[in-house]
């Protein structure tokens, strides 16, 4: 079946089996491997991408369901050097193995769009669909809070 999706502004078209998951399309067809597969059961959020502007878990969606959609992956965030949220994760030790990080950062990105100065509690709520096995959530929350401050200072 023909699928055409825009990922990070670029159009990808391919003939896929209807049972192909969106996360496999992104990783194997578009070769954008920043989107990870963690649990593969919809629980961990490692496969989070933006689907028409909202976060979704791409392991819980078929590629054919995304036909005609606009998707943004972690690669789409750093078109012009690292995004301030990415810088903040580096500076504030927001990751260890990095497996969950692309999902974390995309969830944070959406949060900061609607709520540029979130409280720690709001950050934790926004990350409820993203699990981390190693960092401990404290540094992740601190990274996002720090990013919010930096972005405000930079007027972004």
């Amino acid at each position: 079946m023909q699928v055409k999706v825009k990922i990070n502004g670029k159009e990808y078209q391919d003939d896929v089996e209807p049972r192909m998951l969106l996360v496999h399309f992104i990783r194997e067809k578009a070769r954008l491997t920043g989107t990870h597969i963690g649990c593969d059961t919809g629980n961990c959020g490692a496969c989070t991408v933006l689907f028409n502007g909202r976060t979704i878990k791409s392991c819980l969606m078929l590629a054919v369901q995304a036909n005609g959609a606009e998707i943004m992956t972690i690669e789409g965030l750093s078109t012009n050097g690292l995004h301030p949220i990415q810088d903040a994760f580096l500076e504030k030790f927001g990751f260890q193995c990095g497996y969950c990080t692309s999902g974390m950062i995309l969830s944070a990105y959406v949060l900061l769009q609607s709520n540029p100065q979130p409280t720690d509690h709001e950050i934790r709520e926004a990350l409820e669909g993203n699990l981390c096995m190693c960092t401990g959530y404290q540094q992740i929350v601190e990274s996002i809070s720090y990013a919010a401050t930096k972005m405000k200072e930079a007027g972004k």
């Binding site: 959020g45 989070t48 689907f51 909202r54 976060t55 979704i56 878990k57 969606m61 409820e128 669909g129």
Partner: peptide, 9 residues
């Protein structure tokens, strides 16, 4: 219900 991503879909 669930989390942000689940509620979006």
């Amino acid at each position: 219900v669930g989390d942000v991503q689940v509620r979006n879909r």
